[in-house]
Design a binder for these strands. Structure first.
Lengths: 202, 202
DNA sequence: CGCCGAAAGTGCAGTGACTGCAAAATTGCA
DNA sequence: TGCAATTTTGCAGTCACTGCACTTTCGGCG
C-alpha cells in the first residue's frame, strides 16, 4: 500500500499531508505529461489536478521539470545509506552497479509506478537536460556516502567522486544507447558496461 | 587575431556578420555574467550590449544559458573530426583524454578568452545543469565520431558511447572535485583519472 | 547600375514559468 | 478553547521565450 511511506515516520497530520500533496503533484505531472507531452503541460494544470493552488505548486517543486522527475530527498538518502554500508566482498563499483540498477528496476512495492515513471521520463527527450541535471544531486549524495564508507575526508581524494561519476555515466550511456535503438536489453547492457569498466577501458 | 575564424570560410558578408553577431552576443553574455552573476543578467541586456534587438538574440541562441556557454556547431565538428582520426598507437580513451584536456586548456590562439570562459562558467554553480545538458551534445558528436573511427554502425555497439560517456564523466568529476576544494591541479587529476579508468575501477 | 528574391533583423503581442509579499486558513500544543 | 507556528493562497510583477508580420539588408543577374 501507499501507506508504507506515508505513515512510518513523524506521523503528524502536517507531515503526512505534505507527503500526500507532494506525491499528488508528482502523479498529476506524470499523468499530464503522458497525456499531452511535457511542453504542453502547464504548472497550473498540474496544481489543479493535484487539488492545490498554482502558487502552492512552487512550495513543493522549484520547477515544472522537478515535479515530473519527483526525486525526493528521502530517496537520495536511502540510496546513499545503501552505498555507505560496506557489503562483504563487494567493491564500491559493484555496490554502485547493484544500487543504480535497483533505481531503474521496478522494485518490490511500487512496480507500476516505477515502470510508469521510467517509461514517461525516458520517452520525453525534452526532459534529458533536466534528468542529467538531476543526476548531479544523485552524484553528490552518493559521493558523500562512498567517502564515508572509504573513511576519507570529504573532497580529499578524487577516487570516490570519480567512481560514482563513471558509474552514473555508464548507466546513462546504456539508456541513451537504448533510446537510439541500440541493441540488447537495458539490464544486460548495464552488466556488460560495468564489466568493461572494471576490466579497464581502452 | 579574431580574423582567424571570421574570414577563412564562405567569406560572404552575410556569413561574416552572422559570426560576428554570434560572437558579440557570447562575449556580452560573459561580460555581464562576470559583472552581475548569471541570475541578474537579462537577455535584453545581452542583446543591447551586443548591439542587436532583443528578438534577434533568440535567432542566435535558444536560451540565455546557451548564449553564455556559447558552444558552436563548428567547435563540435572540430572535436569530432579530431577523435575520428586514428592516431598511431593511441587507444580511443587516450585520444579522448587528449581532446577533452585540450578543450579545457587555454589553446594557442584564444588564450585569454578560453581562460575567461572557463573561469566564468565554472564560477557559476547555477550554470551547472546547463553545462551538463550541453555535455549531451558533445557526447553525441564524439560518439558518432568514435563509431566511424571504429568502423561500426551507428548505435550498433555500446562500446563507443560508453567510452565517450565515461571519459566526459571523468573530466566532469575532476572539475567538481576542484570546485569542492579538492586537492591537486586539474590537469594532473585528469591524467590520474584516465589512468585509473584504463587500469579498471573497483 | 539597378532590380529582385532570399535571408536576416525587428517590433508587437502573447503565453507561461517563477518570485515576493501579505492575508487567510490550518494545525500543533498548552 | 485559544495562541503560535506553519502552510495555503491570491495578487502583482518580472522575465524567458515564441509566432507573426513587416522592414531592412545582402547577393546575384540582367
Amino acid at each position: 500500500m501507499s501507506t508504507d511511506l506515508l505513515t512510518d515516520e513523524s506521523c503528524g497530520l502536517r507531515e503526512r499531508k505534505k507527503r500526500e500533496t507532494r506525491r499528488a503533484l508528482n502523479l498529476a505531472a506524470l499523468d499530464l505529461v503522458e497525456e499531452k507531452g511535457f511542453a504542453a503541460v502547464t504548472t497550473e494544470e498540474i496544481a489543479a489536478r493535484a487539488g492545490v493552488s498554482a502558487r502552492t505548486f512552487f512550495n513543493y517543486f522549484p520547477s515544472k521539470e522537478a515535479a515530473v522527475i519527483g526525486t525526493t530527498a528521502e530517496e537520495l538518502e536511502s540510496y546513499a545509506a545503501a552505498l555507505e554500508q560496506d557489503v562483504e566482498g563487494e567493491t564500491p563499483l559493484e555496490s554502485l552497479r547493484r544500487i543504480l540498477a535497483g533505481m531503474l528496476a521496478p522494485a518490490s512495492i511500487d512496480r507500476e509506478l516505477r515502470a510508469r515513471r521510467r517509461r514517461i521520463l525516458l520517452g520525453e527527450p525534452s526532459l534529458a537536460p533536466a534528468l542529467v541535471g538531476n543526476n548531479i544531486r544523485i552524484e553528490n549524495a552518493l559521493t558523500g556516502a562512498l567517502e564515508r564508507r572509504l573513511g576519507v575526508q570529504s573532497g580529499a581524494s578524487l577516487e570516490a567522486r570519480l567512481t560514482v561519476a563513471v558509474a552514473i555515466a555508464a548507466v546513462r550511456a546504456c539508456i541513451e544507447h537504448q533510446q537510439n535503438g541500440g541493441s540488447g536489453r537495458l539490464e544486460r547492457n548495464i552488466d556488460q558496461a560495468f564489466d568493461r569498466i572494471a576490466a579497464g577501458l581502452r
